[in-house]
Computed example of a mutant assay.
Amino acid sequence: MVELLNPGELERGLTGLHGWTGDVHEISRTVNLPSFAAALDAVARIGELAERMNHHPDIDIRYQTLMFHCATHACGGVTDLDLRLAAEIDSILAA
């Protein structure tokens, strides 16, 4: 069973991620990409990743700005799955 992270675990997990903030309820990151097309491409790649992980972020697209929100809804907050998803999102955005 997946367990919620406590505040200390979350803080340690966030230190290894680029631009992610949040609390035990949800973590989030906003990123600006060069164009709307680049934003859509990133969302498509992240969607494929989310399907493979069977863990899906909430994504808000505003022109070339993407806002990601991660929480394990079945658990009611942030778990290690969210930190792993955030790290994978970072890798896709860095490519």
Rank of each mutant, 00 (worst) to 15 (best):
A95E: 15
E48N: 12
D80K: 14
N32P: 00
A37Y: 04
P7Y: 05
G13W: 03
D80Y: 08
A74N: 09
V2G: 00
A86E: 03
I46W: 04
R84N: 14
E51F: 00
D60V: 13
G77I: 09
H56F: 06
S91L: 12
H25T: 08
A74Y: 01
Q64A: 14
A95M: 07
T72C: 03
I27E: 02
S91E: 13
C75P: 00
R45V: 06
V31A: 13
S35Q: 05
D82P: 11
N32I: 11
I61D: 09
D41E: 14
E11V: 00
W20I: 10
A87N: 10
M53F: 11
D90Y: 04
V78I: 01
L5V: 05
V43Q: 04
G77D: 03
V43G: 03
R29N: 08
E48T: 15
G8L: 11
D60W: 01
G16M: 01
F68Q: 05
H73T: 05
A71Q: 08
D58S: 09
G13H: 03
L17Q: 02
L81T: 07
N54H: 14
G22K: 04
A50W: 06
L14Q: 02
T65S: 15
E51H: 02
R62S: 15
A87S: 14
D90W: 06
P7V: 03
P34K: 11
E26F: 05
N54R: 15
G13R: 01
I89H: 07
L17I: 09
D41Y: 05
Q64I: 00
R12N: 11
R62A: 13
N6P: 08
L85C: 14
A42Q: 13
D41C: 06
L85Y: 08
D60I: 12
S91V: 06
T15H: 09
T79M: 08
G76F: 02
L10H: 01
H56Y: 02
E9M: 07
A94H: 11
E9N: 05
G47D: 09
I59E: 12
D80W: 10
H18Q: 04
C75S: 06
V43D: 00
G16H: 07
T72R: 07
A94T: 06
N6C: 10
D82S: 10
G22P: 11
T30M: 03
R62K: 12
